[in-house]
């Protein structure tokens, strides 16, 4: 019982093979989906990987949100399907309005490439269902625009509704309230700047990202979108 994950490839994505490889390593199925696709019906979950979609021209994610596949991603999310945006994928999801806030340049004006510690703040999301609240994970970051920002009202809502999924233990980039990852109201769309797919086995330096991707696969397998769930119900 596992999930079939569609890994969206924009021109300029560069982490799609890592995500596919990590999903397969964890027992899931994964296929690449080019950004011109308009049908995601064969998938139980969708991941938007890191990179520089459409060159990140204008703003990170600004052009990618108009790729044909994004209409399908929006419908998939509206139907309750698990959607994960990692790094540039997170930026695309905020530009598309599927997640609140935006990612601005790091406060220190430096590109950051390091393994950082993040704390799981809620288990009520498609990325953290199998983790524990308070669990600290070592996961790499690799970004210049990872500094989460939103207006005060939005931040209050995110806190009140328990929608900050991950926080940095030591804030590396100036993110408001040390936010490393957030989810939507339905808790089925999650974006995060750290790269869990780069921390799925000890040889990579950390296997702490595995619990996040395993949670995502479990959410996909149990998602209302999954044909397997419909088959069981009937």
């Amino acid at each position: 019982m596992t999930a079939r994950v569609g890994v969206v490839v924009f021109p300029g994505s560069n982490c799609e093979l890592d995500v596919r490889s990590a999903v397969r390593l964890l027992g899931g199925e994964a296929d690449l989906v080019f950004h011109t696709e308009t049908d995601l019906s064969g998938f139980d979950a969708v991941a938007l990987p890191g990179g520089f979609a459409h060159g990140d021209y204008l703003r990170t994610g600004a052009i990618a949100r108009f790729s044909p596949v994004m209409d399908a991603v929006t419908r998939f999310a509206a139907d309750g399907g698990p959607v994960l945006g990692i790094c540039n994928g997170f930026q695309v999801l905020t530009e598309a309005g599927l997640l609140p806030g935006a990612l601005q340049k790091n406060a220190g004006l430096r590109f950051l490439c390091a393994t950082v510690q993040v704390r799981v703040e809620t288990t009520s999301s498609v990325l953290t269902g199998e983790a524990a609240v308070g669990q600290v994970l070592a996961v790499p970051i690799n970004h210049f625009e990872g500094n989460f920002v939103c207006d005060a009202e939005t931040l209050q809502r995110l806190r009140d509704e328990d929608r900050v999924v991950l926080r940095y233990v030591k804030n590396p980039n100036g993110s408001l309230d040390a936010v490393a990852g957030v989810c939507n109201e339905g808790r089925n769309v999650v974006g995060l700047m750290p790269h869990p797919e780069r921390a799925v086995e000890a040889v990579l330096g950390s296997a702490d990202g595995a619990v996040l991707l395993r949670s995502f696969l479990a959410a996909g397998a149990g998602s209302p979108r999954s044909p397997r769930v419909e088959a069981r119900a009937s």
Partner: peptide, 8 residues
């Protein structure tokens, strides 16, 4: 819709 992000 495109040229600016109203959050930023």
């Amino acid at each position: 819709r495109l040229l600016t992000n109203p959050v930023l």
